[in-house]
Nucleic acid binder design. Structure first.
Lengths: 177, 177
DNA sequence: CCTTAAAGTGAGAGTGCCTCGGGAAACTAA
DNA sequence: TTAGTTTCCCGAGGCACTCTCACTTTAAGG
């Protein structure tokens, strides 16, 4: 079980970065379901290389979102619930179809090494903490808030930021004592 | 502009019915994105025949939902807002992916002869009427309620009936004076 | 029957997903 | 430098699905 891990090859590092950049372009333009062959082409790399670096679409999206997640979680400290929900909804609007991709993973068992699943768990933990700090009716559960979070993310994607913000505000009003 | 419309051929009627039945099976099993070749095969018909009857997936889904819609709209008379929202959410859960398919059509221009678009319009009208009859805060708009309706439909699909019902109840509480 | 228009057919072109065996290139150490 | 080793890249090819269209079949109506 020794780990004499050799330094990664230079071309591998370069290709990985090129793939991420191309994927960001493609996903921003065509949504999270954009053609992976197009991504590979955009990165100037063969399709096999893409799959070597990112075995699944989820892995690619997860890598792409990793930085954004870190930034999002870093500033979540001590923020109020309404703001947190707005932030998550805003984040979920990064690429079209992202809310569905992420939501569909809540049902799937999280494979080992899945960055996206880990980030979802972190997000759930923050949500739970933030809910605990909020003043809500006794019969409101964390699940209710998670439901609202998902719904707001989907709404933002389908109908824009204003509709999502209004949904959050109204529902939170209904949750307050 | 005479309409010496000949009676439709017997095999056409038969095939259309077989296609609808096969599509219902397939969509129920695999969601609204199920393979259309499989549907054609299930109906014992060539793929070209499917496309002759239903040029797009939307047309097929629309035809399939037509009866359900009629039933839904028929009993919507005088029902209260909360119930109406629950019914719509329940209806949207008929096939997986239905909420998205319908929502994505709200953005697309409704082509002529599109039954699904027409039904969406009828649904919007009923919603507007029901909202008018409900006792809500002055700053709540019909759009807010439509947003909730879509969100509840999506939630029902992703998280089940209970989560959707709770979202509806909580948000309506936030909308009441 | 026989004509005619409606309906059916299915190969084929296009697109996308994903795999796998062989080739190439970058490291490392002598 | 060079040989050895390991990592990485390549892209043809198998599979699935969508949608079209020139051609064939068949029911309807006289």
């Amino acid at each position: 079980m020794s780990t004499p891990t050799r330094r990664p090859r230079a071309d591998a590092t370069r290709n990985r970065a090129a793939l991420l950049a191309a994927a960001d372009d493609a996903f921003a333009a065509d949504g999270a379901g954009a053609s992976l062959s197009a991504v590979a082409a955009g990165a100037g790399v063969a399709i096999g290389t893409l799959y070597k670096h990112f075995p699944t679409r989820r892995a690619l999206v997860g890598a792409l979102l990793a930085e954004r997640h870190d930034a999002l979680f870093a500033r979540a400290e001590g923020v109020d619930l309404a703001t947190w929900l707005r932030w998550v909804a805003e984040h979920a609007a990064t690429y079209r179809g992202l809310a569905e991709l992420i939501a569909s993973d809540l049902h799937a068992p999280d494979e080992a090494g899945d960055r996206l699943a880990a980030d979802c768990a972190r997000m759930a933990a923050i949500t739970e903490r933030t809910v605990g700090a909020a003043d809500l009716r006794a019969d409101v559960t964390v699940d209710d808030v998670v439901t609202l979070m998902n719904a707001a993310a989907w709404t933002r994607e389908q109908q824009g930021a204003e509709a999502a913000d209004r949904l959050i505000a109204t529902t939170l009003r209904g949750m307050s004592p």
